[in-house]
Computed example of a mutant assay.
Amino acid sequence: MSGQRWKDEKVLGDRSYFIASSDPPRLVLEPVHASDQGVYTCRVDYSLSSSTYVIVNLTVIIPPGPPQVLWQGRSVVGAVGPLGDGERTHLTCRSSGGRPSPVLTWLEGSRSLPLVSVNSTLDPVSGTFTAEATISILATRELLDASYTCHAYTPRHARLEGPPILQGRTTSVSFNITLPPQNVKILGSQSAVTEGTLLRLVCRTYGSHPPARLQWLRGDTLLPDVTYAIEDGGNITTATMRVLVNRQHDGATLTCTAANPVLSVAPITDTTTLTVYYAPVVGLSLGRSMKADRIKEGDDAYFECSIEANPSFHRVDWRHKRESPSAVTHPCCSHASHKLL
């Protein structure tokens, strides 16, 4: 026995159809819209008996909207900061448009992070929820390489029987933390060098974020001819200096300073003192008390031989014209004056 079919196009449109031949007969909605949620009544009329009714309460689950991270009242994408070392702040994860209210969790890897507050509000117009979950973080050096993830999903108790509803959504942030350098060291400065050598010295620092600023100084004078390099993702900075050494560099103190360019704190330093080997430099003159134009035959005369050397000289030879030298062993220092009467 065939019956007449009718539907209100204004209610479900062409997304609905009724299958009377199935057991039991069924109403199909395809696709389902959020507005389809509600109570549906199925009435069956009989020729020889009273009508029967079946009431179905249809719940339509709306996946949560994409989570967003809020910091200091504004949305953040990618990295949070800059943050100072030791600074405490709060991050809020927000997801809007889900029904029922989404569950929000914060994760570091697979570790759940404690929440300091959770909030959910209902939009009476759309019937959807906005959920927020806030965590407290302490900016430390260890947090610099961390990634925090917010996960928004529909609570398990709201899921219907059958296959899981794959609707979890995530977003992740890293942290921009301003950190001072931890250490600065001058490399390759332990050995003595010979005059005329092209000396290469490397200053290395690590731990600064953003990368440290390095400077080479001799006294208060900034040294030129420095090559800079940044390694390990900005964690390591090197400054390589090259200098052609001469005897004036012997005993000179060189300083390398490292500082974070955005922090107003004193730089950290390392110093090295150069040792330069060079051949003796000899100077010969009359004694200081003698006048060259007043020396007469028979007068006593003496000469001063000034010697500058590194390492220290150990022998002085005096010659008069081509006579054999008179050797004088003179253990002393790198700078000395030797007299001959």
Rank of each mutant, 00 (worst) to 15 (best):
R288M: 11
T227H: 15
V243R: 06
R99W: 00
K339Y: 13
G287E: 06
T205P: 02
M290H: 15
T329H: 00
T253P: 03
T238Q: 14
N260T: 12
W106S: 12
G13N: 02
K185H: 02
I307E: 07
L138C: 04
I137F: 01
T89I: 03
N260A: 10
Q68T: 09
P180W: 01
L254E: 10
V103I: 08
H157G: 04
R156H: 05
R204Y: 07
P325C: 08
T171S: 03
I236P: 07
D45E: 15
V44F: 15
S289E: 12
L144A: 05
P82V: 03
T221C: 05
S264Q: 09
D250R: 03
L29R: 03
V328R: 13
A292I: 08
I19W: 02
S337C: 10
R247S: 15
T171F: 00
L70Q: 08
V184L: 02
L223C: 08
T238G: 12
R5D: 12
S172T: 13
R288G: 13
L115V: 02
L27E: 01
H320W: 03
L199K: 05
H33N: 14
L58W: 08
T105G: 13
A146S: 14
H249W: 15
D317E: 10
C42P: 02
Q4E: 14
K185C: 02
T170P: 04
T194Y: 03
L113V: 13
T197M: 08
V39T: 13
V281N: 12
P280N: 00
I295D: 14
V282K: 04
M290R: 10
V243A: 14
A152N: 06
V44D: 01
P63K: 04
P181Y: 00
Y53W: 14
W6V: 06
G65W: 05
V184Y: 04
A258Q: 01
E30N: 06
S21Q: 05
I62D: 06
S47N: 10
N183W: 11
Y277I: 14
R99Q: 06
V60C: 14
P210H: 11
V265E: 10
M290L: 14
F313K: 11
S312W: 00
S51A: 15
S16K: 09
K185S: 04
